[in-house]
Design a protein around this nucleic acid. Structure first.
Lengths: 159, 159
DNA sequence: GTAATACCTATAGTTACTAGAGGTTCAAGT
DNA sequence: ACTTGAACCTCTAGTAACTATAGGTATTAC
C-alpha cells in the first residue's frame, strides 16, 4: 500500500482497536473480522493481549473501507490491496478490476432505475380505494401489467 | 390474494413442485423455503408424501416472485400478501409500503449513481502506468481525492 | 482501590436463499 | 413385472459481510 518506511522513531505512537476503528470509520468488530479473514495482518499485542496499531493500519483500513464504500466485494478489495502493495506493477489489472466493477454497477443501476420507474407508475395509478381495486396489488399479481422490471437472481451490495 | 373461489370441479388439476416452480419462475428449493417461512401455506401431500399444488399456488408464488423482483423484502412481501388476501381493506397501507420502498430505491439509486460517476472519473484518469502512479489506487487510499461517495452501512438487495 | 470503559475470544444470528447428502416415489419403457 | 432415471423428500450446512451476544480480562480515571 505505498507504505512510507516507518520512521524508526523511539516515540512511535500505538493506538488501540477502538481508536483505529474511529479513525477509519468502522467498528472494532469489523476490524477484528478483517484480521480474521486476512484483509488486515494480525496486529501485535501489548502485555495484556490487546491489539496495538500504527498509522499504517489506519491507512490500510481506510483503503479497505473506502473500496467497500465503492461497492467492491471483499475479494476484490483483497486483490486491490495486493496490487497497492506492489507499486511497481503495471496498473492494468487495477484498471481492469475497476472497469469490471463499473460494468456491474451500471447493470445494477439500469435494473434499479427500471424498478423505480415501475414503482412510480404503480403508485401514481393508485386510486386510493380498497385493496380490491388497488393497482399496486394488480401489478404485483400479474406480470403482464408491468412494463420494465425483469426477474433477477441474487442479492447484491450497496445501498 | 383476490382468490376466485375454486370451482368445485371433479377434474381439478394438481401439479408437483417442479411444475409450480417452472410456472412461477423459481426453483423447487425456493418453494419449499417459502413454505417453511410461511409465505406459502403448507401444501397438501399425495400418497407418497409429495406436495400437490393448484393454480392458486401458481398465482400466489408469482405474486411473491414479482414483488421480490421489485426489491421488496420478504417481510414486506408477507405484508403485501396479507393485504392482497383482504380485498375489502382500504389500500392505504399498500400505498404506504410502496412509497416507503420507492424512497429506499431512490436513495440506493442516488448512492449508486455517485459510485458510478466516481468510478468513471477514476478510470478516465488512469494514465496506464504503474500502480505507483495509479489514480484509482490513489482515490481509494485517500478519501479527500474522492468527490461524491459517502460511507454507508449494510448490504442491500437488487442487482 | 474501585468503577467505568475498553478490550478479549468464541459462538450464533442476520437475509434470502442455494447446495449437498442420503433416501423415497413416480412415470416410462421393456 | 421390473428396472431405470427423474423428480421428490428431509435435514443440514454454506453463502456475503458483517453484527450481536455472552462471559471474561485489561486499562484508565478518580
Amino acid at each position: 500500500m505505498k507504505e512510507q518506511k516507518p520512521a524508526p522513531s523511539t516515540t512511535e505512537r500505538y493506538i488501540g482497536i477502538g481508536e483505529l476503528a474511529r479513525e477509519s470509520g468502522c467498528k472494532p468488530e469489523t476490524v477484528r473480522y478483517y484480521e480474521q479473514i486476512g484483509l488486515l495482518p494480525s496486529a501485535p499485542r501489548n502485555e495484556g493481549n490487546q491489539r496495538r496499531y500504527t498509522t499504517a493500519a489506519i491507512r490500510r483500513l481506510t483503503f479497505i473501507r473506502h473500496a467497500r464504500d465503492f461497492g467492491f466485494s471483499v475479494e476484490a478489495v483483497r486483490e486491490l490491496l495486493e496490487m497497492a502493495d506492489h507499486p511497481a506493477m503495471p496498473c492494468q489489472e487495477v484498471d481492469t478490476l475497476a472497469k469490471h466493477h463499473l460494468a456491474e454497477v451500471e447493470a445494477r443501476l439500469a435494473r434499479l432505475t427500471a424498478v423505480r420507474d415501475e414503482l412510480k407508475r404503480m403508485i401514481n395509478q393508485c386510486a386510493g380505494g380498497s385493496v380490491g381495486q388497488c393497482h399496486i396489488i394488480d401489478v404485483l399479481s400479474d406480470h403482464r401489467l408491468c412494463h420494465q422490471v425483469e426477474p433477477h437472481g441474487g442479492a447484491d451490495v450497496i445501498g
